[in-house]
């Protein structure tokens, strides 16, 4: 190495040689260590002596390469120096490692194939087979609302619902009917007040008398503007309030009726007195006899 360094200053050609040699040395060192590690990985079961022997062999190879470099001329040295390391490493690694790696890959591929086969088999069984659309409904075909499997009809379903219906639901209806109608009581109605929002009549109805609703109840439903039917004169319901003239006329008629009533009442009183007196006379005669 020192000779080569000294030659730099004497002749520039040898400088190139030094650079190449340094690179080769570093490469050879790395490769030798790499091969050692590979050997150790591949030959895990071997002894330490065999590993030492491998190291010695690599050292010997390195020495041989160095000797070759010194002897050859510069041009020839370039060509020969590059090729040997590659060949050495390739031969050493290739022959040992593949047998261990390939089986693993093959087993994994086989497993994948097996899984895919299983999936295919399962998929066929689980896949829903759609019914042909041209199939006419009826017969032994499946239900229209369900695709694929026929529904597993179990007789217990209808029996279950029959029991629920006949022994659970219908008796409940009967019991509730008895409870409701036995505890039912008539409610009192509210006092009539002619609220603006109640008893709305914007037009007359097209049925009945035009003032009563379809489900009119004479006791509970009041009629505007008077109120409940059994509290007011029905003939006046829905009519306009009377005017002053009508009121005066009505009062005149009322006065006439009152006068007639008084006359008749006075006459009736006199007649009653006469009858009473006559009755007393007859009573006295009978007592005298």
């Amino acid at each position: 190495m020192r000779h080569l360094q000294l030659m730099k200053y004497v002749n520039p050609r040898f400088a190139i040689n030094t650079v190449i040699t340094q690179r080769l040395m570093s490469k050879s060192d790395g490769k030798s260590s790499g091969t050692g590690s590979k050997d150790a990985k591949c030959k895990g079961t071997k002894d330490a002596k065999s590993s030492n022997a491998a190291k010695k062999s690599t050292e010997a190879k390195a020495k041989a390469s160095d000797a070759a470099k010194k002897a050859t001329p510069p041009k020839a040295a370039k060509e020969t120096k590059v090729t040997p390391p590659k060949d050495e490493t390739a031969i050493a690694g290739g022959s040992k490692c593949p047998p261990k790696v390939q089986p693993v890959a093959e087993t994994s591929k086989n497993k994948k194939k097996l899984q895919s086969c299983d999936e295919l088999l399962l998929g066929k069984s689980t896949r829903k087979q759609k019914k042909p659309l041209t199939a006419i409904q009826g017969g032994d075909l499946g239900c229209p609302g369900r695709t694929g499997k026929k529904p597993q009809i179990v007789a217990q379903h209808s029996k279950l619902w029959q029991k629920i219906s006949l022994f659970g639901v219908l008796p409940m209806i009967a019991i509730l009917t008895l409870l409701v109608f036995s505890t039912r009581s008539e409610e009192e109605r509210l006092e009539f007040k002619n609220y603006e929002h109640m008893y709305r009549r914007t037009k007359r109805y097209w049925f009945k008398d035009g003032n009563r609703t379809a489900f009119h109840n004479s006791h509970f439903n009041a009629l505007p503007p008077a109120g409940y039917e059994d509290e007011v004169d029905e003939s006046g319901i829905g009519q306009d309030p009377e005017t002053d003239k009508d009121k005066k006329a009505r009062m005149k008629e009322f006065d006439k009726v009152v006068k007639n009533w008084r006359k008749h009442s006075s006459k009736r009183d006199a007649q009653l007195k006469k009858e009473a007196a006559a009755a007393e006379k007859e009573a006295r005669k009978q007592e005298a006899q």
């Binding site: 239900c143 009809i153 007789a155 379903h157 209808s158 629920i164 219906s165 659970g168 639901v169 209806i173």
Partner: peptide
């Protein structure tokens, strides 16, 4: 209760028809 009961009876009819 009546309408709920009728829902049960119509279900009974449906299951019977499917069987």
């Amino acid at each position: 209760a009546i309408l709920l009961a009728s829902g049960v009876t119509v279900t009974w009819a449906h299951h019977s028809l499917m069987e």
